[in-house]
């Protein structure tokens, strides 16, 4: 299907977003000697090996002890270090929520919580590891910045950008190899949404891996004579409400797309923005109050209603409600 579509963004290569993190961390570490890394026995999975090899004295293996890792990161930050913690998204959030809440968020520590294997696209490991609630948990914490980039290049750029940003950050990325469709030299501005495709009938607000699905959905809608605007919401918090409201003022309806529960996720944040300013129709593409299961990423996105076809259907529902 992709081959026959006239996509506004294309790719020649695919890579996992976690590799964008690993490569970004290495560059951030070369740029700033205060950058330090911590990992809870998942160096290979988080792609932190190159950083560890180049900066062994600035790398901390904590073993399978995520709560301790969060506390140590907070302690390291006190003297001006910029700690990047690495583990799966599940163990980066739910498992250590109170440690993050007290020692990092409430204490406003400059810790970067870097979380891989988020969402359904983790695949075969199943629901124990497929966290779909992490964006919600993290965005509720005062002081916390929440970022969910869409491909290798954007994840790398985001990793380098958060090293320059003062304050706690949750950076979410994933495991599957995914099209690289954003530029390698992009400037990543925290909190600034990126309008990728102009449109006039409906806006698709997408985050993470689903930005690619939104790019496909735009082409599918265009074939049916529907003009969709695609906005890449890489920063869930602080949310670029101005970009959201400007776009919906023009299109009059919207779809949110995320690899997350829509209860508490990006969809909720956009709904809150619209309801207070411009209560236009909004349709959610997200997981509807359920856990995931084992399967391939493609199978799971289809079964749980998160692929381009689901975005197209949601866009049509939103249009019908205008």
């Amino acid at each position: 299907m992709e081959k026959t579509l006239d996509l506004k963004f294309n790719y020649t290569d695919k890579k996992d977003t976690r590799s964008g993190f690993g490569d970004g961390l290495l560059e951030a570490g070369r740029k700033n000697p205060n950058v330090v890394g911590l990992c809870a026995d998942l160096i290979g999975s988080l792609k932190m090996g190159a950083f560890q090899k180049e900066f062994p004295e600035r790398f901390f293996q904590t073993g399978i002890a995520e709560a301790n890792m969060m506390g140590i990161a907070a302690g390291l930050s006190i003297s001006g270090k910029i700690p990047f913690t690495g583990t799966f998204a599940n163990f980066s959030t739910g498992r250590v929520y109170d440690q993050i809440r007290q020692s990092i968020a409430y204490s406003d520590k400059n810790v970067k919580i870097c979380a891989s294997h988020a969402g359904l696209t983790l695949g075969e490991d199943g629901a124990t590891h497929q966290i779909l609630e992490d964006l919600g948990m993290m965005k509720m914490l005062p002081h916390m910045t929440v970022i969910n980039p869409c491909d290798y290049n954007q994840t790398k750029a985001a990793t380098m950008a958060i090293a320059e940003h003062e304050g706690p950050v949750y950076l979410r990325f994933g495991r599957p190899v995914w099209p690289i469709f954003t530029p390698a030299d992009q400037k990543f501005e925290i909190g600034k949404a990126w309008k990728m495709i102009d449109g006039k009938d409906v806006t698709i607000f997408a985050t993470g891996h689903l930005v690619w699905e939104a790019v496909i959905a735009e082409a599918m809608l265009r074939e049916e004579g529907i003009s969709a605007e695609v906005i890449n919401i890489h920063t869930i918090k602080p949310l670029d409400t101005e970009a959201i409201l400007d776009s919906v003022a023009k299109t009059g309806c919207a779809v949110s797309a995320e690899e997350h529960q829509y209860n508490g996720g990006l969809g909720d944040s956009i709904a809150q923005t619209l309801i207070r300013n411009n209560p236009a129709p909004l349709e959610y593409v997200g997981v509807d109050d359920s856990f995931g299961e084992s399967g391939t990423p493609t199978q799971l996105l289809e079964k749980y209603g998160l692929n381009a076809a689901n975005i197209v259907a949601a866009a049509k529902r939103a249009l019908a409600r205008k």
Binding site: R58, F60, M70, G71, I72, A74, G75, S79, S103
Partner: peptide, 27 residues
């Protein structure tokens, strides 16, 4: 005060991080 505390069990980890930072800094 350098960090919030009250929810128990967290201070030892924080102190370890601060101690390791001192080692990196040669303090």
């Amino acid at each position: 005060i350098r960090i919030a505390s009250g929810s128990l069990g967290q201070g030892l980890s924080v102190a370890i991080g601060a101690a390791q930072a001192k080692k990196i800094d040669g303090d």
